[in-house]
């Protein structure tokens, strides 16, 4: 459940952003330190932990044999889910998922699916009957803002390390045997989520929880590389404020630069 920022916080941040300042001395478009580690759970087929500043998210990949969808008989399935556990923040409450808990996995789903980083056509076990379902499950461990960007880094990282389990003779997965076969991943696509947040006339990136809550709008882009071109795969604007076409154009100029910059930072982990 989001809490409402006080007018004092909103007005202070608005004034500071206007002067290009932030409480932690970062530039308006500067990300906090990013760290990625792997093997959060040895029961998962792939897993990663991402830290952006104090925000921390773990992502696990599970694979299971399943039936293909009728409109994609020759492809494996992808399912992205997740939850905002009360473990990660006093703002998260147990019970039926709130909007943020519904939106997060849906945004990651679109960014990953539309980038085609997973070669789903190579995940067919028996055409038309049996395919692998790739489950990407996202759990924040500590929420200090910008969860979506962090979750997408986690999903991409975990996919890159994921393995396909062996199959038993009866067609079920043998999770006991050590999986060796790598999940078919297209190299060089590197889907990332890049979000912009707006307060007053200022646009900032990678907000802390306090900053994010004060902001009046967010726009999240899923970006990847396809045939050496930058491609936007997904986008969603949220909250009440609006974006002018000039602001949209400015973000379009920033996107490829930010994408390269983030990937440069992430290279040593991927």
């Amino acid at each position: 459940m989001a809490m409402k920022s006080t007018n004092l916080t909103i007005n202070t941040l608005k004034r500071m952003f206007k002067e290009g300042k932030r409480f932690d001395d970062r530039k308006l478009d500067e990300y906090r330190k990013i760290e990625v580690s792997y093997d959060v759970s040895n029961k998962a087929e792939g897993s990663a932990r991402v830290k952006i500043g104090k925000t921390e998210v773990i992502v696990g990949i599970k694979l299971a044999p399943g039936t293909p969808y009728p409109d994609s008989l020759d492809k494996g399935n992808l399912m992205v889910s997740g939850d905002l556990l009360p473990l990660a923040s006093p703002r998260f409450e147990s019970g039926p998922p709130g909007f943020a808990a519904i939106e997060l996995p849906r945004l990651i789903d679109r960014a990953i699916r539309e980038s085609h980083i997973i070669e789903l056509d190579k995940l067919v076990i028996k055409e038309g009957e049996k395919v692998w379902t790739v489950f990407i499950d996202i759990y924040p461990l500590n929420d200090d803002g910008n969860l979506i960007d962090a979750a997408c880094i986690g999903a991409t990282a975990a996919l890159k390390k994921a393995k396909i389990p062996e199959l038993n003779e009866n067609g079920t997965a043998d999770y006991e045997k050590k999986a060796k076969k790598e999940l078919p991943i297209s190299e060089g696509i590197e889907p990332l989520s890049i979000s912009f947040f707006k307060l007053g006339d200022s646009i900032i990136m990678d907000p802390t929880r306090e900053e994010e809550e004060a902001c009046e709008a967010r726009i999240t882009f899923g970006l990847s590389k396809w045939k050496k071109q930058y491609m936007i795969n997904s986008c969603q604007k949220s909250k009440e404020a609006t974006f002018s076409s000039a602001e949209i154009e400015k973000m379009m100029e920033m996107l490829p630069k930010k994408f390269d910059h983030l990937n440069e930072k992430l290279k040593k982990f991927f």
Partner: peptide, 30 residues
């Protein structure tokens, strides 16, 4: 690429997207 905007001004209130589009081509869509 579903969009919504104020009828008489240049403010966009809905932007969603699904697929593959180069950032430099978004201007044409707008």
């Amino acid at each position: 690429f579903p969009l919504a905007k104020f009828a008489t001004s240049d403010e966009f209130t809905l932007m969603q997207l699904d697929g593959k589009i180069q950032p430099e081509r978004v201007k044409e869509v707008i």
